[in-house]
Design a protein around this nucleic acid. Structure first.
Lengths: 165, 165
DNA sequence: TTCAAGTGTCTTGACATCAAGATATTCTCG
DNA sequence: CGAGAATATCTTGATGTCAAGACACTTGAA
């Protein structure tokens, strides 16, 4: 089945036959698929009055395990947003009683963000919904293909995640 | 090499051993890689005073071929933004003399957006830069692996691109 | 011990995005 | 032909994000 990137690549080969546009076959698909996933997540979460950015923060804290707390800096590396954005997110989640700020006892510059009981419930509920949606999207692929795809993607993400990006 | 998604999946398996989180192996990597790519593009383009969103619109028009014009609606399906966003983008690109709006002669509801000469130059210059950057990122993979990866991703993007998403 | 460099978080201001709905035109079909 | 449905674009208002820099605390080297 043809997709929009096939058409995009064909158009470039017609307009700019001097360029090798093969990299787009992979990376334009990654970017476009991520945008489609964002849209789908936004729609799915809206049924539970949850925004994608709220999900990202709450589940980061949830999977840290009890007592469900991380520093803003740790949340940054998990969510790939800037520090100003994270400050703003924590403010808003605090107002909704989903997280609370605590002083870090071992570093007085620092803060710990902790999930409230309500926040934990919300994280658990929404994760199940997300997994169901993602399973449907991935039903296009066999188990073996999903494994191959994960492995290939890991080779591209690892440099970003391990070298300070 | 381990990446952040390996750690994320391991954490979920510890915290929620009752759930099958295998879908995250693929789709969390797609989302995270897209964010890394966005950041890298933003940095690379900033050297030429270009924003990623400007690149997306200008190159969509460029690869349409002479006379380098598309309707706002066609630009929507290529860039995956909402119509209000596209109106705003066209406004801003018009102010910078990179595109111009023309009435559509065949549909009086419609508009055509056309690249100016300056806009075309900018598109051509920035595409070469993007391809160089993407080639470096993809150097982790062999030619064959890149082909496999593109094929697997196509299976996931095709439903979004072909069924009205 | 002290001070310069480093680190962690927050503040600020500009701006891009979205959802929802308004408006104008075209299409469809009785 | 005419009315209602569909389509194309724009408007509006709220909100989320970023880059840059400020501030407070910690670390390391002399």
């Amino acid at each position: 089945m043809e997709d929009e990137v096939d058409r995009l690549v064909a158009a470039w080969r017609r307009e700019r036959p001097d360029l090798d546009v093969e990299p787009l076959e992979v990376l334009s698909r990654v970017s476009r698929l991520a945008r489609h996933l964002d849209r789908a997540r936004r729609i799915a979460f809206s049924e539970h009055n949850l925004e994608p950015w709220e999900f990202d923060v709450l589940t980061s804290l949830r999977r840290a395990g009890a007592p469900y707390q991380l520093s803003p800096g740790q949340l940054l590396t998990q969510t790939l947003v800037t520090s100003g954005t994270m400050t703003n997110r924590i403010d808003r989640l605090t107002k909704k009683n989903l997280v609370e700020r605590l002083p870090d006892p071992s570093d007085r510059r620092g803060v710990l963000v902790r999930l409230t009981a309500e926040g934990r419930d919300k994280a658990d509920q929404s994760l199940a919904g997300l997994l169901a949606q993602e399973r449907a999207i991935l039903s296009e692929l066999s188990t073996q293909q999903r494994g191959e795809l994960a492995g290939l993607l890991r080779q591209l993400t690892a440099p970003f995640d391990n070298i300070p990006g």
